[in-house]
Computed example of a mutant assay.
Amino acid sequence: MSHKRRELYRNAEQGKIAGVCAGIADYFGWETWLIRILVVSGVLFGMPFLILGYVAAWFILDKTPTKTAKVNYQGHESNYAKGQQPKQSADVAHESIKVKARIWQSGEPAKQALYDIARKFRSLEGRVQAMEHYVTSTEFTVAREINKL
């Protein structure tokens, strides 16, 4: 069993201040809000060295490379409710859906995962319908006859 070696990065796209908490959450596979609550609680309850650690991590850690940036699934429902366009169908067909098993783990809640799966199937159904329309058209028949020559 081979495990992919993960590296710790700052996730500036999902971060509030510098992306340190978001990077730690990505590294451990936890939700970002949980890491933020732990850090703020630690500072409030007598661990001020966490502020120094946060600032040090801000300067030490590199930003997440764009090719390994993770997709944040938390905002899907609110984005669609605001009338924004969904992802392109090519992106929808190839995106992976990770359902969280525990509340602190990263991933999608089951309700959001079902919504995304339904959206994925609608996208794929549209592509299949377009292929069926082309195969049953006279354009396809003519192209096939020309290729036989």
Rank of each mutant, 00 (worst) to 15 (best):
R102L: 14
L114Q: 13
G107S: 02
D116V: 05
E95I: 11
Q88T: 09
A101Q: 15
P109K: 07
D116Q: 13
E108R: 06
L114G: 02
E108S: 10
A101V: 15
L114W: 07
A101W: 12
I97E: 00
K98V: 11
S89N: 10
I103C: 09
V99L: 01
G107F: 04
K98E: 11
V92K: 02
S89G: 10
S96M: 12
D91C: 05
A101M: 15
P109W: 04
D91Q: 15
I117N: 01
H94Q: 11
I103V: 10
K100F: 01
A110N: 04
V92E: 02
K111T: 07
V92W: 01
I117R: 03
K98M: 15
G107I: 00
G107R: 00
K100A: 09
Y115F: 13
V92H: 00
A93D: 07
E108N: 09
E108K: 03
D116I: 06
K87P: 02
V99G: 00
E95Y: 15
K98C: 10
S89E: 08
S96C: 11
Q88Y: 10
A113D: 05
I97S: 03
I103H: 10
D91E: 08
E95A: 15
W104L: 08
R102H: 12
Q112K: 15
A90D: 08
H94L: 09
K87Y: 04
Y115H: 11
A101S: 15
I103K: 14
I97G: 00
Y115M: 14
A113W: 00
W104P: 01
P109R: 08
A90W: 13
H94A: 12
K87M: 14
E108C: 10
E95R: 14
A110Q: 05
Q88N: 12
H94F: 14
P109H: 10
D116F: 08
S89M: 06
P109Q: 08
Q105C: 10
Q105P: 05
S106V: 02
S106Y: 06
K100I: 03
L114E: 11
V99R: 04
K98R: 09
A90N: 10
P109L: 07
I103T: 04
S106E: 13
E95M: 10
A101R: 15
I97C: 02
S106Q: 12
G107W: 02
S96Y: 11
P109M: 02
I103N: 08
Q88L: 10
